[in-house]
Simulated scan of single mutants.
Amino acid sequence: MTTRELATLIWLLIGSLACLAVRDIRGSIVNVLKLMFQRKIFTALALYGALLFGLTWLVAQFGYWDSSLIGAVGFWFLFTGFKSFLQSADTGSKDGFFRERAVELVGLAAFFEFFLNIRTFSLPVEFFLQLVLAFLFLMRTVSKTKEELKSVSRLLGSLLALAILWLVVATIDNLVDHRSDIEVHDVIALYLVPIWLTVGSLPYIYLLSLYGGYESVMVRMRASEDPPVSWRAKLGVMVGLKGNLRQIHDFVGVWSRRAGVTGSFSGARRIVKEFKEARS
């Protein structure tokens, strides 16, 4: 674990303890944990964790992961992987979700983050630096919401830009001073961490979204006063929608009800075909 990851972990622990000290927030955290331990969610999360463990083991067999990257994997799960898991139900609400995730891996922001993490500073510097950056970012975010604080927002934006510029210059200087300590293989391994984790986990996120989407469609196919929907109609809808998350998400209202009352495979597929034609 790098000093930056350790400093982040310390700040997260401090923030968690501060939240637990507030009764209302503590109660909300308990409710969230109870929700996470429901059988369906817990099983899906456990399978997700098992997949990531398997991916890590596989990459380690090729020599591109070791214990020094535990922090990188852990923070990827905390800030990216877990977020994708929680948002899996909404994946079908917009086009290009998976394409966006793939583009992010090779974007400028991803490279910039990787560059800054090649070599970090001492723990005290990292600890203080994160405090300053977080303070400037939060204050600027708040000031941007108020018209009378526009000048303050611009000042904070300038200070934030200067802090990031210093970080870039100091990182370059740090890399030059310790260039003999840098192993190319280790740098490549660090760069690949978010790539293989994201690429390897996206199929699982898709399956979660697909399961949740079809489950929602099946519920909407029947009103409370209707008889149970036949499995043939359900199968017809599933085959007709062909795993398209956006279409599954939009197959609501009269469309899902009409497919449910047909009671047949061909009838449900006909409704899905009409739905697609109406969208085109």
Rank of each mutant, 00 (worst) to 15 (best):
S68L: 06
S88N: 07
F112P: 06
Y214G: 06
N31R: 15
F115G: 05
N31V: 15
G27E: 14
I205L: 02
F79T: 07
V237G: 00
A109F: 14
D177T: 11
G243N: 03
Q61H: 11
G49T: 02
S266R: 15
G236Y: 01
A18D: 08
D250R: 12
Y206N: 02
L45S: 12
L116A: 06
S68I: 05
G15E: 02
R4V: 12
G236N: 00
A21N: 05
R140E: 13
S216D: 13
E148T: 09
S68H: 08
L235R: 12
R119Y: 10
S122T: 13
V73D: 07
K83H: 13
T43K: 15
K34Y: 13
G107A: 03
L20Q: 08
L138I: 10
L131C: 07
Y48D: 09
P194L: 05
A18H: 08
A163Q: 08
A259V: 01
E100P: 05
L9G: 14
R269F: 03
L20V: 07
V237L: 00
S151Q: 10
R257V: 09
L47W: 06
Y64N: 00
D226L: 05
L235C: 07
S209A: 11
S122E: 07
L138W: 05
R99V: 12
V219Q: 15
P227N: 02
F112R: 08
D66I: 06
E104F: 14
I25Q: 05
E104N: 15
T120G: 07
L208R: 04
E183C: 12
F85N: 02
G81Y: 01
S153N: 08
I205W: 04
G240R: 02
S151V: 11
F82G: 05
E148F: 10
L156T: 00
S216Y: 03
T2Q: 12
H185R: 11
H185P: 08
F53E: 10
L33P: 04
V237Q: 01
K273L: 13
W76C: 08
G240H: 00
I248P: 02
A72S: 15
L17M: 13
V176H: 09
K276N: 12
K273A: 13
K83Q: 14
V169R: 04
V152G: 00
K94Y: 06
V168N: 08
F82K: 09
R257T: 09
T2V: 06
A268P: 05
R39H: 14
A259E: 00
A278D: 14
L208Q: 09
L208A: 06
H178S: 09
W76A: 06
E225K: 13
Q61C: 09
G243H: 05
L17T: 08
L241G: 01
L245S: 01
G49R: 03
F128V: 14
T171Y: 00
T141H: 10
V106P: 01
G267M: 04
